[in-house]
């Protein structure tokens, strides 16, 4: 006897559906790159997973069909710049699948979020490619040119808003004069927020991590902002910039590598939020999501063992 609710592979498919809104918005602002990256990533993920499964003598078809490799690929593709060269995403996905997941025994056994491990690897190895973002809508031809390394792409690239703002602040520019709000970033975040609400509605993710993560971001950046509103940008900006919403609903909520107890999820999400702000404000990277998630992944066993729920009658 089994319930008629979703099974694991249907869950993965729903996650991909939920990403559609955010990806569409991103497409609207920055063009074809993101779609090409997604296609490359999914192919790379399936190739990497199949190859490794074959080496491990595991059934390939039934494992690939669980969709988890594809989700890892898509999440990484969304996280990197849409005009990055093709080998960046391929190397990243291979690293994510092999060293992030398969090497620990495959789905369900990985202590780290594979997509974020891949992202961190790329950011450390290829910082230039990982920080050069499209600054306008890029046509399919130019996107291909850029991704396939056919021509220089300086005309339509720039740093992310977070990077730009931090640089300006470090140069002493006052926040008011910066206009740190980025329309495109805000809309993309809004798109992922909608997708996330869909996942919540379908009960594919629980509310604990998104809510605690967003409160972590809001409270930490709020405290900093109250301390000095000239040096730190306001909390609403943190919520609308970078990978905030993507992380809240799609990355921090990865069930395998996140805390599994209800209270543990609250702590886990909140601390990721705190770390994201700390890394964004005081760190040297454009966004803090990947490192915050990976750091908290390490803490998961500890959190879980201290947040066991009270058992009935005990």
């Amino acid at each position: 006897m089994h319930s008629n609710t979703l099974d694991s592979s249907q869950i993965m498919r729903q996650v991909i559906y939920a990403l559609i809104v955010g990806v569409s918005v991103s497409f609207y602002f920055f063009g074809w790159g993101i779609l090409i990256q997604i296609v490359l990533a999914v192919i790379a993920a399936i190739v990497a997973e199949s190859a490794f499964l074959k080496m491990r003598n595991y059934p390939i078809k039934s494992t690939i069909s669980d969709g988890s490799a594809a989700v890892t690929g898509v999440l990484l593709a969304i996280s990197i710049p849409s005009i990055a060269p093709w080998w960046v995403i391929v190397v990243g996905v291979f690293f994510a699948i092999i060293f992030g997941k398969q090497i620990y025994g495959g789905l369900g056994n990985n202590p780290f979020n594979p997509a974020m491990l891949g992202y961190a690897f790329l950011l450390i190895s290829y910082p230039l490619h990982m920080t050069t973002w499209a600054s306008e809508f890029v046509s399919i031809g130019s996107s291909l040119d850029s991704i396939l390394n056919l021509s220089s792409v300086d005309t339509f690239t720039g740093a992310t808003k977070l990077d730009e703002v931090r640089t300006q602040i470090s140069l002493g520019t006052a926040i008011e004069t910066l206009k740190p709000y980025s329309v495109s970033q805000a809309w993309i975040n809004f798109g992922f927020l909608l997708g996330g609400l869909y996942l919540l509605m379908r009960k594919i993710i629980f509310w604990h991590i998104p809510v605690s993560f967003l409160s972590g971001i809001f409270l930490t950046s709020g405290v900093l902002f109250l301390m000095d509103d000239n040096a730190y940008f306001p909390p609403q900006l943190h919520l609308m910039l970078g990978a905030t919403m993507l992380c809240a609903f799609f990355i921090a909520t990865d069930p395998v590598s996140s805390s599994t107890t209800p209270n543990g999820r609250l702590i886990y999400g909140f601390l990721i939020g705190v770390l994201v702000v700390i890394i964004r404000v005081f760190g040297g990277y454009p966004d803090g999501v990947a490192f915050a998630v990976l750091l908290m992944n390490i803490a998961v066993p500890l959190i879980d063992s201290y947040t066991k729920p009270r058992v009935f009658g005990k």
Binding site: T5, D7, S8, L107, G108, V256, S258, P262
Partner: peptide, 13 residues
């Protein structure tokens, strides 16, 4: 049903 790996989704708890 095909038994797959536990993804620690927490539906059970």
């Amino acid at each position: 049903y095909d038994v797959k790996e536990c993804i620690r989704c927490g539906s059970c708890n």
